[in-house]
Design a protein around this nucleic acid. Structure first.
Lengths: 337, 337
DNA sequence: CTGAAAGCGCTAACAT
DNA sequence: ATGTTAGCGCTTTCAG
């Protein structure tokens, strides 16, 4: 094994407790003593054994970030920031991949990692409010994204209705009349949980445009491939759309590809806008107009709130934090130049 | 605290050791006993306290994957598989971001996370063979990627010379004569460590094409932006290239963007090929020709080798494992349709 | 300001 | 096949 507190204590001629106090700073230590201990630590190259510390403290120092897929650049970007932020607060962040599967989400939500993680930042896709309310564990939880609302947990997200509205308003302002939405899900009509669809409808309504169900495409997942498929179908309509609002950038990028394959021009024939502002959208041809959430802020808030809950700080009631966003017009709606 | 072994032992009327054996299966347990214990476990909802287990075993069950950036889709895809694979072997994988910074790489290499992780899968960028040889810790280490070779550690990678050669041969076969390489680094000429550049030169040589230094672009990083910048410069040459081989897909995608911005046609004016086969390359316009490494195989081998070392298994066979790759021709070299 | 000692939950060596 | 127990390294209460 490595160097332990005991080794340092012997070397410095003090007690275990004193060394611990030098390391952790809970109690004051005399300047002389501190110096001797510090020297011993440096000489022997001591690093605390975290397993022991965690056993004693009843915590592991691990928090999890549960996302549907790391290969969605939005989540990769979010994760990168969350990892850094967790590190700053003395925690190690582990990724949990739900693959957008109900079982995986339920298992995580209900403490699959109990005793392993101190808390969970969770971006639900399949699981709804009811499942969150019926949770079988009390591991601290922070929700992110638009999946679940009004549950008694901290929730960090953009105002999805407003974000979608601003995207669609942009298309309306460009004179588009037949605006499609790709990325709806079965059952959404009744659930009223799908805020992006709601924002889309609201923007249509305020522009005096009719809501056309045939322009709303349901997708299985939220990847590029889903965008391609849905867009092909939309292009095959007798009256195809002159604009598309994608649930996220990946879907919008898929739509762009489908238009290109069909020989259409963007934005002349079809304007396209997404949400997420992933790096990829800035380098394709055309570049992608998008609604940019403040990813750093979301990640930071989520991790900080979670840690506050874990450490039992007096955090006032479950809180919903709406982080800022902004529309970023690019070539897919405004054309080159 | 939660339910402990002791609680289960009392409930089932057996000893601690027996419960432990039911959980871990080190020693045989009678059918009757096993049943009673299992029942108690289910009823009380027992999960082992990992901190205690790790303290006792002297291991943490954590392994790290150190990569330059999670926002490079290649690494995100790799990480996703590595996480799953680690989980299968009973380990939790944590991501470490080096940001391609020398300091960060050195610190990780020399045990920054000692006592926290049992082993490290490392994709070095800045750090070279010398630094790896001079390592100040004995935490098990597996290297991946083309950064460091011939160090006394397991190393999983594709044959980068061969992979690059196949990419450039493809361009040669298409009749291209002025083939550029984007993604060289300062000092490469002497180091001979940059295998992709070597493969590029080899393919030129075997095709009887001259090596033109002005067609080799040095980049600071390996991102899309670096590809854009380098390509702009190449296009400004008196005799611009008729083909580009990018160090990776991100650079190639940047090159595609620069060509589009300059009003050039791909592949008519410039053919482009990269390495990595990231998902993004399959959905842009044009789609990107690439050399596809077997990411799953790389991730799997790296994690398995590392765990074998951690658990002290007699690891046999060569230290260096070359995983398969294949050329995937797409529109950026062969045109649409 | 410092020391002694209990004990977190578990595994493994030693008994039976 | 099962039980007993030492001890992993640390934090923290209680004494001084």
């Amino acid at each position: 094994m490595g160097v332990s507190l005991k080794d340092i204590a012997e070397r410095a001629g003090v007690s275990l407790a004193t060394v611990s106090n030098v390391v952790n700073g809970y109690r004051p230590v005399g300047a002389q003593t501190r110096l001797r201990v510090q020297q011993a630590i440096d000489e022997l190259g001591y690093t605390p054994n975290l397993s022991a510390r965690h056993l004693r403290r009843g915590r592991t120092g691990l928090i999890a970030l549960a996302i549907p897929e790391l290969t969605n650049p939005y989540f990769a970007e979010l994760a990168e920031i969350a990892i850094r932020e967790a590190g700053r607060l003395g925690y190690t962040l582990v990724m949990e991949n739900t693959a957008a599967a109900y079982e995986a989400e339920m298992s995580l939500l209900n403490g699959a990692q109990r005793h392993v993680i101190d808390g969970l930042v969770f971006s639900p896709v399949r699981v709804g409010r009811d499942e969150v309310l019926a949770r079988a564990t009390d591991t601290p939880l922070v929700l992110i994204g638009e999946g679940v609302h009004d549950a008694p947990y901290d929730h960090i997200a953009i105002d999805n209705v407003a974000a979608s509205r601003s995207a669609v308003r942009h298309l309306v302002a460009l004179g588009r009349r037949r605006i499609a939405f790709i990325g709806a899900r079965h059952g959404d009509e009744s659930q009223a949980a799908h805020l992006r669809l709601r924002g889309y409808r609201a923007a249509l309504a305020e522009a005096g445009l009719p809501y056309r169900p045939e322009l709303v495409a349901v997708t299985a997942q939220f990847g590029r491939r889903d965008g391609v498929r849905a867009m092909r179908d939309l292009l095959a309509l007798a009256e195809p759309p002159d604009a598309v609002f994608g649930y996220n950038d990946l879907i919008a990028i898929g739509a762009l590809r489908a238009v290109a394959e069909a020989g259409g021009r963007v934005p002349t024939d079809v304007a396209v806008v997404g949400i997420d502002d992933i790096e990829e959208g800035r380098f394709g041809t055309p570049t992608l107009t998008t609604v940019a959430p403040d990813k750093a802020e979301i990640a930071r808030q989520a991790v900080h709130r979670l840690v506050a809950r874990i450490e039992g700080a007096a955090v006032t009631g479950p809180l919903t934090v709406q982080t800022p966003f902004r529309l970023v017009p690019r070539e897919s709606t405004t054309g080159p130049g």
